[in-house]
């Protein structure tokens, strides 16, 4: 199995971090992973994005042109990448910042008000974790426990409050798709 993702949004929304945490979790589960960010002027214009691949096979080209999953944190990301989602693929969109959505009707679309959810949890910076929760809740791409372990190692001492908020956000995202 090979899953190819693009995660995209405004700079500061944490789109690149979504790819990074999913790839790290994949690595921890002994899968092959790659993470390739857009860089340079491509970062401007609201679509700071990353190609991430999680695969049982060694990864050849790390560039994702036709993603299985698109995580779009804002409307420009949908405009730019939704047309390329593989047929039958998945779009995870931040409803708060994607007012127009997409016209695609051959893919699964999950929309969630990630800004609102993050605000309720108490920190805007966990909005990307809501997206991660939706992705793993829907696809089982990596296990929640793996993410929890990694985040705990990363944040337990540095910022326990943020750790709690992050884990809460992931769970919230998972709840959205379990309904």
């Amino acid at each position: 199995m090979t899953t190819e993702l693009i995660c995209s949004g405004f700079g500061g929304q944490g789109a690149l971090t979504i790819g990074k945490f999913l790839a790290k979790a994949g690595m921890a589960e002994d899968l092959n992973v790659s993470w390739l960010p857009s860089y340079g002027p491509e970062m401007r214009g609201g679509t700071a994005n990353v190609s991430a691949i999680i695969s049982e096979k060694p990864i050849a080209s790390p560039i994702v042109s036709y993603p299985d999953i698109l995580v779009a944190l804002n409307q420009p990301s949908i405009d730019k990448f939704a047309p390329n989602i593989k047929k039958g693929g998945l779009l995870v969109a931040n409803k708060d910042m994607c007012p127009h959505g997409t016209e695609r009707d051959d893919i699964t679309i999950i929309e969630a008000p990630m800004n609102t959810i993050a605000k309720e949890i108490g920190s805007m910076i966990v909005l990307n974790m809501v997206a991660i929760g939706i992705v793993i809740g829907k696809t089982g791409l990596v296990k929640y426990e793996t993410l929890e372990k990694d985040l705990t190692e990363f944040l337990e001492k540095k910022n326990p409050e943020l750790l709690k908020a992050n884990l809460k956000a992931i769970k919230k995202g998972m709840e959205i798709v379990s309904k």
């Binding site: 990074k20 790839a23 690595m27 092959n32 992973v33 790659s34 993470w35 390739l36 960010p37 860089y39 990864i59 790390p62 560039i63």
Partner: peptide, 10 residues
């Protein structure tokens, strides 16, 4: 090249 420089892998 830029790809190997920019990409993350284990």
């Amino acid at each position: 090249d830029g790809l190997l420089g920019q990409m993350m892998e284990p």
